[in-house]
Design a protein around this nucleic acid. Sequence first.
DNA 1: AATGAATGAGAGTTCATTCAT
DNA 2: CATGAATGAACTCTCATTCAT
Lengths: 209, 209, 209, 209
Amino acid sequence: MPTQPLTALKPRKTPSQSRSRVTVDAIYEATIQVLLSRGMAGLTTTGVAERAGVSVGTMYQYFPNKQSLVYALNERFLTTLAERVEATCAQMQGRSIAEAAEALVDTYWAAKTERPELTRALYRSVAELETDALLRAFAARVDKATTDMFCRASDFRSPDAGEVNLLLTTVIYGSVRNAFERGLGQEEIAGLKSGLKAMCRAYLEAVGN
Amino acid sequence: MPTQPLTALKPRKTPSQSRSRVTVDAIYEATIQVLLSRGMAGLTTTGVAERAGVSVGTMYQYFPNKQSLVYALNERFLTTLAERVEATCAQMQGRSIAEAAEALVDTYWAAKTERPELTRALYRSVAELETDALLRAFAARVDKATTDMFCRASDFRSPDAGEVNLLLTTVIYGSVRNAFERGLGQEEIAGLKSGLKAMCRAYLEAVGN
Amino acid sequence: MPTQPLTALKPRKTPSQSRSRVTVDAIYEATIQVLLSRGMAGLTTTGVAERAGVSVGTMYQYFPNKQSLVYALNERFLTTLAERVEATCAQMQGRSIAEAAEALVDTYWAAKTERPELTRALYRSVAELETDALLRAFAARVDKATTDMFCRASDFRSPDAGEVNLLLTTVIYGSVRNAFERGLGQEEIAGLKSGLKAMCRAYLEAVGN
Amino acid sequence: MPTQPLTALKPRKTPSQSRSRVTVDAIYEATIQVLLSRGMAGLTTTGVAERAGVSVGTMYQYFPNKQSLVYALNERFLTTLAERVEATCAQMQGRSIAEAAEALVDTYWAAKTERPELTRALYRSVAELETDALLRAFAARVDKATTDMFCRASDFRSPDAGEVNLLLTTVIYGSVRNAFERGLGQEEIAGLKSGLKAMCRAYLEAVGN
DNA sequence: AATGAATGAGAGTTCATTCAT
DNA sequence: CATGAATGAACTCTCATTCAT
């Protein structure tokens, strides 16, 4: 898989005029629609343009290639997610680690659950993209926020904040994803979520926090 | 995403003759090679046939279409994985839940780590396939085994084995996948694995097992 | 190749105002720049407009279509070339045919060599254009001048001036072009030029001039 | 203009089977037809395939891209031309330089005039191709043959055969091309040809051959 | 008069699949 | 049975040209 230069995935022009803004938003939304209705394999440039009500040419003025469409979607989604996590982290400053962890579970879960179909589609879309860099950047950003939160927790005394952070975030993010992949009902989801929190709590108590 | 009839993904004939067996195996291996070297997008039928040293026509004798190649790969991999998990479950009969959980972590982790690149490739390949049914079948099979194991654990007293099982397996499988997605070093992986075990243990103790 | 009406290749308006003149000149120059840097295939209307620092719309005010850009370039170049040849012809009135021929070699060669890259680019551009009419007009104009010059040469006694003219000009123009197509060094070029002159002289002497 | 690797212009497979041979020949001929009827700009891959009576896919099995079609045409033509020149050179061994030069004029002229429209089309096609290498190779090959011929001429005494060769070939090849570009009648062509020969003869006599 | 966003026909190219040999 | 040449629908992307602002 040849690695593409990142620039090739970035939108071509930042829409400053209002007309452009509308166009770009329409394309974003159309990409989501097509992704949901026809899946990643059925996502064609003409299909997206048609759904967006613009010509292919117009679309290509804002997105240099097909990949950039999905890339932009992921970028948007991840940015929002990161902001939410950061907000939670800021809010949880000085609380106990357990409380912080539980809040993280809630925030992450909520963000992913808001548009479950989109979440699922994006999870899948990632597989075909050169999104490694994007994901890594996102992970770094979020890790920084959560590590900070854990460090400044009222009861923090672990020698290595990074280790705690890695464990908790891996378990939380991974569990959320896996929960998504099983087709679970409301009740099961609720049980899973509280179970996950309980696990985090129990672990932190056990290691002395 | 139009759902395809499952039969279209199954190999066309079960190779009984030894020559066929060799051919099919070559195709399997070639699919893996191409998947690893060129990624899912670079996986072409002619490419696989070439690598396998057979003609496209011959390949189509055994695999009805392109998807079936990757489908078969996943099926093989998941079957092996299921067998391993079942073996572990059988072996852990009568031990404590915590021990069982830890053994599950070890088995699952080991299976996924054996050919990390292939694991990664298959994780990704799933996104583009109609593998939901396959995955569900795998999940059901494995869940049965683990639930059984937990039920018959020496210290089992939870009213709902399914709930415990869902939580533990979701956390374990999810964490492993997430660990895979971060590019971690040996040391971090080791820490993560023992941390995951500790979490399971702590949780089980906390809920009275 | 459908023949286009010649009018479609002419600049739309003769720029009388000074601002327009500047704009048109900028476009001319930009066309050259792009032609040299990206070749005929890389010559796009937006590319030229950008380089010229004007909008596509403005460009289309002065040039009705893409072809007209290159057409105009050729026209300019050929006009200048014709003027130079005419000047030489005027200057050589009354001299011997051999001297006239040599002067023609010098003038033509110098004109083509002044901006060799541009010459090369224009030679190539012609292939893709409906420039036959333009070239014919140029040829007629120049032939008239040179035929005149030969007719009025001090030692002219050939029965058919047109024939002599056709031979000499064909050989001269053709040789210059061919010399351009081989990638020759300074020394070879000098040798070629003096050789060409010698040929003309020898021929004229041999036929009695 | 980025230089392309030469390999990209070479036919993909050498047709060994007779069916393939027919196909490839049909494509060659179709390329010529389209080139003549619609010009270089009107040469499309689908157009050629259609004219050849094959599918685009088939065409792409033998020619890796559009350029390679025209490239192959030029290659064929130039090879034939080179062979003819070489044959003439072999035949003219030991004759006088003047006779050799005249024979060269005849051969070259005849080869170019055989299919005048094709010659014209190929002259033009060259402009848009990365044929520099091809042309250089052809020039080197032909120059070698003609230089040899001149060296071994019965009356050869010039100190530098290369110089004589360069002059004569440049004048001959250039004149032929220029003659092609003017739309000349039979009579003028005949006059031009004999004039060109006379020039060569006169020159050689003048310099002592 | 100038702008440049929008257009969309149409280009080149790929590749899963078939079927005559 | 095996082969691999042939197919052609479908895809991505370009760019000359227009016209509302």
